[in-house]
Amino acid sequence: MGMFMRGWSAVYYREILILRKRIFRQIASMSVMPLLYIVAFGYGLGKDVTVAGTTYMAFLLPGLAAMSSMIQGFNIASEINITRFYWRVFEEFQAAPLRSIAYVTAEVLYGITRAILGVTIITGLGWMFGIRLSYNFYFWSAMTLNAFLFASLAVALAMLVRSHADQALLVNFVITPMGFLGGTFFPVEKMPSWVQSILYYLPITHAARAMRDAAMGKVPDTESYVILAAMGALCFVCALMCVGMAKE
């Protein structure tokens, strides 16, 4: 247990040191996308539009928070690839007495940390634009589960890809479509029933739904949390297996 604690804490501490060194660039980078969406979609298209019984601005912000937690959690894959392909840091982890579960835990926690930072920025931007929502326990729980899921998926896929081009393909064909189709910008209920059936299996759909309900002061459906937790646990196990194979 002691070796596990020292192992994951050392890897996590390294990631936090790197994040702290470039924190201002990260904050600026995390702010650009939601700011553009709030201005373009919130003000440009939907300032006077109501969706699901609320203003479109209030509807949009929790969706952006869900999408940000997904993107920030998954973005650790690029950093892991850099440590593998260029800095050769992963080779040092392989040589060290570091268990796979300690490494995966540290990287996933780092992904969650990035997601918390990104969502905090979005809620701050919302406050600046006068969007007053409830950021309660249910909201942050759904966000954490979503970040846990995609950070675990990022670790698994980072062990499988062979180049940055492969990584870009995953983002373009998996993460980006998921972000736009999972109820971020529009109610999933407005889609045809057969499309809703497909979107039901996207984790971002459940994250956006739970976070939006919580932000509106409602009690989210427990089913969304169960699905996110189950998918996250599956991705975490896959990450452990992929890291184990990469070490061999």
Rank of each mutant, 00 (worst) to 15 (best):
S29Y: 11
M128K: 13
P34R: 07
T55N: 02
I131L: 11
A40R: 10
S69R: 01
L125C: 08
P34A: 05
E91P: 04
A115Y: 09
Y135L: 05
E79W: 14
L35W: 12
I27K: 09
R84Y: 05
I80K: 06
L45K: 03
A40H: 00
L36W: 07
V32F: 09
G130T: 08
F59G: 02
S134G: 10
A96K: 11
M33I: 12
T113H: 14
T105G: 05
Y86K: 15
T55F: 05
G130N: 10
V39W: 14
T54A: 06
S100C: 13
I76F: 05
L133D: 02
T83I: 05
F41Q: 02
G118I: 01
G118V: 07
P34F: 00
I116F: 14
G53F: 08
R132I: 09
G63I: 01
R99F: 10
S141W: 13
Y103C: 11
T50S: 12
G111R: 07
A65L: 04
A65M: 09
G111S: 06
N81F: 02
F139W: 07
G73S: 11
S100V: 12
N136S: 10
V104H: 10
Y103H: 06
V119F: 00
A58M: 09
W127E: 13
G46A: 03
P34L: 00
I112Y: 07
Y110A: 04
I121M: 10
W87H: 15
P62Q: 05
Y86Q: 14
Y138S: 03
V108F: 06
A102Y: 08
G44A: 08
A95R: 15
A40W: 01
V119C: 02
T50A: 08
F90N: 12
M67G: 06
E79F: 15
F90C: 07
G53H: 02
M33G: 09
S68D: 12
